[in-house]
Design a protein around this nucleic acid. Sequence first.
DNA 1: CTTTAATCGATAAATATATATCGTTATAAA
DNA 2: TTTATAACGATATATATTTATCGATTAAAG
Lengths: 211, 211
Amino acid sequence: MKPVPYPTIQRFPLYLEVIKQLQLAGIKTISATDIAQNLGFTNIQVRKDIGYTGIIGKPKIGYNIKELEKVITSFLGWQNTNDAILVGVGALGSALLGYKGFEDYGLNIISGFDVNKKIVGKKIHGKKILHIDDFESQVKLLKVSIGILTVNQSSAQQITDLMVKAGIKGIWNFSSENLKVPDDIVVQRENLSASLALLSVKLSHKFKTKQ
Amino acid sequence: MKPVPYPTIQRFPLYLEVIKQLQLAGIKTISATDIAQNLGFTNIQVRKDIGYTGIIGKPKIGYNIKELEKVITSFLGWQNTNDAILVGVGALGSALLGYKGFEDYGLNIISGFDVNKKIVGKKIHGKKILHIDDFESQVKLLKVSIGILTVNQSSAQQITDLMVKAGIKGIWNFSSENLKVPDDIVVQRENLSASLALLSVKLSHKFKTKQ
DNA sequence: CTTTAATCGATAAATATATATCGTTATAAA
DNA sequence: TTTATAACGATATATATTTATCGATTAAAG
Ligand SMILES: NC(=O)c1ccc[n+]([C@@H]2O[C@H](COP(=O)([O-])OP(=O)(O)OC[C@H]3O[C@@H](n4cnc5c(N)ncnc54)[C@H](O)[C@@H]3O)[C@@H](O)[C@H]2O)c1
Ligand SMILES: NC(=O)c1ccc[n+]([C@@H]2O[C@H](COP(=O)([O-])OP(=O)(O)OC[C@H]3O[C@@H](n4cnc5c(N)ncnc54)[C@H](O)[C@@H]3O)[C@@H](O)[C@H]2O)c1
């Protein structure tokens, strides 16, 4: 099997969003053209992406929308709930802890960890905040494999090491630290600066060429 | 001039991060190899990226670190402060309002806007929260061109329309709505789901192949 | 029943991006 | 001073991704 391109994987959640929306409108079938028009992509690209899931569409009709939702969700591994823990319950960490939207992505944040005595022991959005000293035992006990990292940059590597030691396999890194991890650990950087860089450059380019 | 690839633009902030770190350590020159090793890239890629800035390096030495920082920052348009406003001062919006790190990216969030009477009129992290009814006049008055969108998905398109009407040229969209905008408006989606999709797939792939 | 048009899926071509090669240059060691 | 080497920058190759082409299929219109 040929590997699925990363850009394709990143577009899948966008397709799910369109699917969700059209399903609310009562629509039963959906074509690559429908999705493409909604998102501003080419239908060829969307059709090729969908092809990776193995679903069979009907000419003139498209795909069964329920089935398409299922195969994409399944491809992403979002059909089952994946447990995660979050470290660093500050401004950003609290927002993530309380975000309901993660349910759609099969992500369930069990609890948060911090050092700050003012919040340890409390609940935020119904999630218990525990002390970082209990992190390793809790993760091992609950067999959590995903860690969300929202501590200050200065603590990021240290907490990463702790996560690895506790058995975390995937780290979603919201800090700007370049984390060092063993080969078998996956780090996904949530890179606000990269996104802002694109916005900045596109904007300045527009201003230069337009006027 | 050939356009600079988007992937290159997205890597530039990572290079700045390494530069910042090495500068703290007192280092005066930096090679493409240094940066590459820090980030796990190839030195060829880093050298090519840097080439787009036009900076001249010295064989055996690399680049003057101060100069390299300057040309990358300048390329991104981050040498001057760009004013922005934020709409939707909820959990995520508050976190972004208070985030000091944006200073490094030349981004200055002037104020926040919301409809919630409980927060309108207050200050969050020193930033005034105004009512959305005053949005258009304020934006026109202050000539802000960047808008940060952190409202509920259901209000996202409506606020986008308002931003466009008020003269906003670039929208940083944190909602999962597929925004419709005129051609001359730049929308940058901050796509948590795309990032999570990659993490999910990489993880499941690791588990499948490793064990 | 035949024709038309939309869309699929497979294959091919084009474009974009990453990696490799190579001659040159500047430093530091011999 | 000569030699060895790290790194630059330009060019070439390889890989990845997107876009185009085309025959086949199906539903709907004529
Ligand atoms: N706030 C934002 O909008 C934003 C945007 C982009 C990136 N980030 C990054 O996200 C991270 C968090 O940002 P924030 O604004 O929420 O900061 P914050 O200071 O509000 O939160 C950091 C939290 O981490 C906790 N912490 C620190 N060291 C710890 C440790 N060793 N163990 C456990 N907990 C620890 C602190 O007690 C605090 O609660 C930072 O790395 C920041 O650069 C934040
Ligand atoms: N919280 C997260 O971690 C997170 C993660 C990813 C994406 N998002 C997205 O970011 C957005 C905000 O998320 P949140 O968790 O901060 O939600 P939230 O409910 O805490 O905040 C939304 C804010 O927008 C305000 N608002 C709503 N309609 C408005 C309008 N018409 N004009 C002005 N203000 C308005 C609300 O009063 C509220 O303060 C959502 O679209 C969400 O999907 C959030």
